[in-house]
Simulated assay, not measured.
Amino acid sequence: MARISRQDTRLDAPKGSRGPFSARLGGRPSRDRFGRFTEWIARKMGTPWFLIGLTIFAAAWLIYNVTAPAEWRFDSAANGFTALTLILSLQASYAAPLILLAQNRQDDRDRVQIEQDRQRAERNLNDTEYLAREVVSLRLAMKDMATKEFIRGELRSLVEELDRDTTEERPVD
C-alpha cells in the first residue's frame, strides 16, 4: 500500500504550487527522469567532445601540478598524481553503471518496438490474406459470370432460331 505524505493530504494548496521535491519527501525520484538523465550522460560520454574535454582537463591538471610553485601544487608528481587518479577512477566507476542503465532503457525501448513491429506485421499478413481470399472469390465469381462474347453468341443463336421459326411459319403462296 502506498504511503501518502502529509503534503499530499493538504487540500488548501494546489498540487502545482508545491515544490518539485515536496511531493516526494521520503520517496524515490522519478525513474523516468533518472533514466533520461543517465541516457543524457551516456550520450555525452560517447562524444569526441567529452574525450577532448577530459584530455584537456587531465593535461591542465598535470601541467599545473608539475610547473606551479611547490606550495601551490595540490597533487604531487612524487605521489603519482593520486588526486587525479582518484578523480578519473571515480568518473569511470560512475560511467560504467550509467552506460549500462542507458543500455537497459534502450533494450526496453527496442523490445517494445519489436513487439509493435511484430503486431504490425501480423496485421499486414492478415490483411494480405483477406485481400487474397477476396481476389480469389472475385476470380471464381468472374468464371461463373457471362462474358460479352458469350452473351453475343447466345443472342445470335436466339436470333437465328427466331429467323428459322418465322420462316417456317410463313405460308407458302
Rank of each mutant, 00 (worst) to 15 (best):
D107M: 10
L54G: 03
T47C: 06
A141T: 06
R28H: 04
T147M: 01
R36F: 07
L25N: 05
S17I: 07
A60P: 01
I4P: 01
E168V: 07
A2N: 07
N126D: 06
P48W: 08
R156F: 13
A77C: 11
F21R: 09
V172I: 13
P69H: 04
P20F: 10
N126T: 03
D163N: 11
L101E: 00
E161P: 00
G153M: 10
L51N: 08
D108W: 04
T167Q: 13
R24T: 05
R10C: 02
A2P: 05
A70E: 15
F21A: 09
D117E: 15
L54N: 12
A70R: 15
R33E: 06
R31W: 04
A68Q: 04
Q106K: 13
A78F: 13
T55Y: 02
F150E: 15
T85P: 00
R28W: 03
F74D: 01
R109F: 01
R109P: 00
L11A: 06
I41Q: 05
I56N: 04
P97M: 00
Y130C: 12
A2T: 07
R105C: 03
A78Q: 14
D75F: 04
R152M: 14
L25H: 06
S137N: 14
F57M: 01
V112M: 09
G27P: 01
N104P: 00
E149N: 12
L100V: 06
E39W: 00
R36S: 12
T82A: 15
G80R: 06
F50A: 06
G16W: 08
V136R: 10
W72A: 15
S157F: 05
S76G: 03
I99L: 08
E160N: 15
R109L: 12
K15N: 03
N104Y: 08
L51D: 12
V135W: 10
E149T: 05
I41L: 14
Q103W: 04
P69F: 02
D8Y: 04
R111H: 12
G153F: 11
T85K: 13
R164C: 09
Q106M: 03
D108A: 09
E169K: 14
R73F: 07
